[in-house]
Amino acid sequence: MTTVQDLSDAGRRMYRGAFFLFVLAEAMIFVTLFSTRFLLAGMGHPAEVNGSLGLAVTLLLVASLAPLFAGINRIRAGRRGAGMLGVAALLGALALALIVYDWATLAIPVGSRYGENYVMSTGYHALHILLGLTGLLIVAGADSRREFNAANHWQVGAAAVFWSFVVLTWIALFAVFFIF
């Protein structure tokens, strides 16, 4: 998928639009997860929830958006953005590591209604971080092989859209599990 394809404008529009269909389907997963959390565990969260860690993950993920868009802008300008994309992926990987650490040191009883929803949702989200990271690394690798040019780089856009979606759902998850 990463060979340079000379796409028409319509072709680029198609790939961009079609990718949002993925994102819509993915969003439905999180709609289900979050509504289940409220249905089963009601409002409120136990005091043991590691809020500072959640905040740290949020900040890392939000921060990763800056190098992500910087990388895209560089590619759009005809330069190489692989380094910036790599930085974004690094921040994402740190966030993932934090989530794994959180799981390892979880103070919430996993058997409680809140706990199982917490584990399920963060687990699902971690899977999406992993997918997003894979996507970022693939396009970063392709870019370092000069497979994109200023006009044709919809794959980078797709990876960025997915990563932005991952960040946004984490923010929603943070609100759903750490704030409410």
């Binding site: 409220f38 249905l39 565990a41 009601g42 209604r113």
Partner: peptide, 14 residues
């Protein structure tokens, strides 16, 4: 149904 019953129950429990 779930919306009206469950939040109440959760708070009731807590």
């Amino acid at each position: 149904m779930p919306g009206m019953d469950m939040p109440g129950s959760g708070m009731g429990g807590a």
